[in-house]
């Protein structure tokens, strides 16, 4: 077991982890942040997407130890990030939230996309969201939601 320090949604935590524990496991099981979902556990679906130092990553295959000292933003971090709230509302308003299971990851991917490229084209939006599978929407509503934020 070893200690790591994470700043999660603006709050500093010192957490005792198993050496090879995943960041997803730390968030869900140690910090109780269940907004971040596990859809496949192999980095193939994006449901567990969070931001580490502003970059989108699959937390299910992210060694927690490598996040030591990093800033982490999850879908629960609205208070710390008003932009996230705008994205969440746009997703709801455009019908991009159906069953909702992919929504946290998809919203975090959108957050990273718009940080890097505030005015993406349709093609860039689709590429930006291509690491997140959704089975409900056919992605159209998500593209519409992101476009509404440009």
């Amino acid at each position: 077991m070893l200690n790591i320090q994470l700043t999660v949604n603006g709050e500093l935590h010192t957490i005792l982890i198993d050496p090879a524990e995943t960041l997803l496991h730390v968030l869900r099981e140690k910090l109780g942040l269940t907004g971040t979902k596990e859809g496949c556990g192999e980095g193939d679906c994006g449901a567990c997407t969070i931001l580490v130092n502003g970059k989108s990553v699959n937390s299910c295959i992210y060694p927690a130890i490598q996040a030591d000292g990093c800033e982490i933003l999850t879908v629960e971090g609205v208070e710390k990030n008003p932009k996230l709230a705008r994205i969440q509302q746009a997703f709801v308003d455009h019908g991009a939230v159906q069953c909702g299971f992919c929504s946290p990851g998809m919203i975090m991917a959108t957050c990273a996309l718009l940080d890097e490229n505030p005015t993406p084209t349709d093609e860039e939006i689709r590429r930006g969201l291509s690491g997140n599978l959704c089975r409900c929407t056919g992605y159209q509503a998500m593209v519409d939601a992101v476009k509404s934020l440009i």
Partner: peptide, 23 residues
Amino acid sequence: EKRGRLEGLDKATGRALYAGDYR
């Protein structure tokens, strides 16, 4: 009328609990 989901924000903010989220 066009309308987003009533429960949409619960899902979009991660507050909504799926069966695997209970503990």
